[in-house]
């Protein structure tokens, strides 16, 4: 009996939270956009959210590409198929690792920072004070951050994949001695622009939307104390990572599973 009561209360809480999050989203994006004011604010946020995540994305992309080439080579060389190293690295990066790893890193690097920043703005009454100055904080604070996240993350994912493929080249070709021509040409013969690259970009746009939505909402909805903000930041990382992995499965099934 108690179990059912808990379940019911939990479900209601979740639904209520989802409702609040949807309200926030609509308030920020749908209601009366003001592009002239939005664009400079969004550029500033792209700097914070995107440019400052660039280093971690490039470094991880490089290493993941290198590790994949190393692992792939040792397996493929047994079958004399080391020529397929190129497509293996490229396909796994473009279809999966690019969007997913970028999303996870983005959630940890930029998502948590967004939540903490908005939470602190709430705690220091900056959001309230905007409201009292007759400026809608949803449009002034939340909307530029949402747009910046949605724009930046797919860009980061593209860079991640490109750097990863170069990293794979570095290890596979320059170090392990796979033929450079076959690395590229078999990759080119296998990778399809629409099926692989575009689907990867679509994935990362979906992830970007979900992560930024969760991050901004968790900050906006946080309890404005140090404890509340730290909880909100943790929840941002946990929820958005889980959401990314879950959505990845659904998207992969839709894109590649059913031919």
């Amino acid at each position: 009996m108690k179990w059912f009561i808990n379940l019911g209360a939990n479900t209601l809480n979740r639904l209520e939270m989802f409702g609040r999050a949807t309200f926030m989203l609509f308030g920020a994006i749908v209601a009366k956009p003001q592009p002239l004011k939005m664009i400079p604010l969004t550029i500033k946020q792209i700097h914070v959210v995107g440019v400052q995540s660039l280093l971690i994305i490039v470094v991880s992309g490089l290493f993941i590409g290198m590790v994949m080439a190393l692992q792939g080579y040792t397996i493929l060389v047994d079958y004399g198929a080391e020529g397929s190293l190129g497509p293996m690295v490229a396909l796994s990066l473009l279809r999966e690792l690019g969007p997913v790893v970028t999303a996870l890193l983005f959630a940890g690097r930029a998502g948590s920072a967004l939540t903490a920043e908005i939470g602190l703005m709430k705690a220091t009454e900056q959001l309230s004070s905007l409201e009292m100055m007759a400026v809608d904080p949803l449009r002034r604070v939340i909307a530029p951050r949402l747009w910046a996240g949605i724009i930046s993350m797919p860009m980061l994912a593209l860079i991640f994949s490109a750097v990863g493929i170069l990293g794979g080249h570095l290890v596979g070709v320059d170090w392990l001695g796979v033929d450079s021509g076959s690395y590229w040409s078999i990759m080119q013969a296998t990778v399809d622009w629409n099926k692989d690259v575009v689907n990867g970009i679509i994935k990362s746009i979906v992830f970007a939307f979900v992560i930024t939505w969760i991050a901004t909402f968790k900050g906006y909805d946080s309890i404005p104390t140090s404890e509340g903000i730290s909880k909100a930041t943790t929840e941002t990382v946990v929820f958005s990572s889980l959401a990314v992995l879950g959505l990845d499965f659904i998207l992969t099934a839709l894109m590649f599973g059913i031919e």
Binding site: I43, H47, S152, L158, A162, Q188
Partner: peptide
């Protein structure tokens, strides 16, 4: 400075996109 860095960021993305298009997917 922020605008400059965002510009560099966009340029990098375009470079990565071009590389994927031409070198990887052979478009």
């Amino acid at each position: 400075k922020a605008e400059l860095l965002v510009g560099v960021f966009v340029a990098l993305t375009i470079a990565a996109g071009l590389m994927l298009a031409l070198n990887v997917a052979n478009q």
